[in-house]
Simulated scan of single mutants.
Amino acid sequence: MKVFHGIDELERAVGTHLGYSKWHTVTQQQIDLFADATGDHQWIHVDPARAADGPFGTTIAHGYLTLSLVPMLLWQIYTVEGVQAAVNYGADKLRFPAPVPVGSRVRAGAELLSVAEGPGGWKLVVRVTIERDSGGKPACVVETVSVVTQ
């Protein structure tokens, strides 16, 4: 994990790749729990028997489930010491180029795009790419926007 010792050090890292998270296996239980939490019980996610005859040959994770893994995976990549709080501000350019079949392993890579001082703190923009261990197109690409306060 990359540890930044304050905003000054973080600013010097703009434009660099921060590293990768550990691999995380997406399970059917995780998919089912996400379906329960969001009310999205589409068969392609929660019905293994029907999904076996579907376009992917198995159930797939919800795109928003894949997105929801971002905070957990980013905490494995970097941290900034000396900040009081870090809050999600939003996201830009969200895409789901490829599905995540159940049982897939995914990890995140992160690139620091910008750090800018503004009202309420420092705004950080990080491009997160969630890739599958099977290769090919990424499962999710998003520019996360957070605000940190010192």
Rank of each mutant, 00 (worst) to 15 (best):
V70R: 08
Q84G: 15
E131C: 00
V83Y: 13
R132D: 00
T129L: 11
S114Q: 09
G57Y: 02
P99A: 06
V128K: 06
G121I: 03
R132A: 01
V87G: 09
T16M: 03
H41W: 13
M1G: 15
V46C: 12
G109W: 09
F56Y: 15
L94Y: 12
N88A: 15
A85E: 12
A49G: 08
H62C: 14
Q150G: 05
A86V: 14
C140E: 12
G109A: 13
L10R: 06
L124K: 08
F56N: 10
H45S: 09
E81Y: 09
A139Q: 04
V147Q: 01
P101L: 04
T66I: 10
V3N: 11
T66K: 07
A116T: 07
G109K: 03
L73S: 07
S21M: 06
D53I: 02
S21D: 04
W75L: 04
L74W: 10
V145F: 01
V70D: 04
E131R: 01
G82Q: 13
L18K: 00
S114V: 08
P48V: 09
H62Q: 09
S134Q: 13
F96C: 12
Y20R: 15
G19H: 06
F4N: 06
Q42R: 10
V126D: 02
V106Q: 00
H62R: 08
V126W: 04
T27W: 05
A86W: 07
Q29N: 05
R107S: 00
K22N: 07
M1N: 11
G39P: 07
A35D: 07
W122P: 02
K2T: 14
V87N: 12
L65I: 07
L33D: 14
R107W: 01
T25L: 01
R95N: 14
I60A: 07
V102Q: 03
R12M: 05
C140G: 00
L10W: 05
H5L: 07
H5A: 11
T144Y: 00
G63I: 04
R12V: 12
R50N: 10
T25R: 12
V126S: 04
D40K: 10
A108Y: 03
L94C: 08
Q76T: 03
I31V: 15
I44Y: 05
D53E: 15
T144A: 02
G54D: 13
I130N: 01
V106W: 03
S146H: 04
Y64F: 15
A37H: 10
T25E: 12
E143K: 05
D133E: 14
